[in-house]
Design a protein around this nucleic acid. Sequence first.
DNA 1: CGGTTGACCAAGT
DNA 2: GACTTGGCCAACC
Length: 101
Amino acid sequence: MESFDERCYELLKQVPKGKVTTYKAIAEALGTKAYRAVGGAMNRNPYAPKVPCHRVVNVDGSLGGFAFGQAEKVARLKAEGVEVEQGKIKAFKERLYDAFQ
DNA sequence: CGGTTGACCAAGT
DNA sequence: GACTTGGCCAACC
């Protein structure tokens, strides 16, 4: 039985490059409402390069937090082609991915 | 095992 | 538009 955290990572790995998802989407995909627990899993994320934690944002398209600082999060997103402005994802709805299997 | 904390969310002020 | 409040639930001490 995988822990709650590991299931978050598995879902996150399904998010294609250039797209983003939300803490809520992940929690709901796991059948729970522990939005904050999802963020906690990312914060303690032991799979730093493997799991694309930077592709997870708030439900309104704002960046949310990041263990290495928001600036780093923006840089990584931009490196994947995701444009960010004023702490929010541009064309958020178009880049949003929540079709988890 | 109880209380605190948190990379959240929604609604109210 | 910014700030406060209440609620949710897993991890941590």
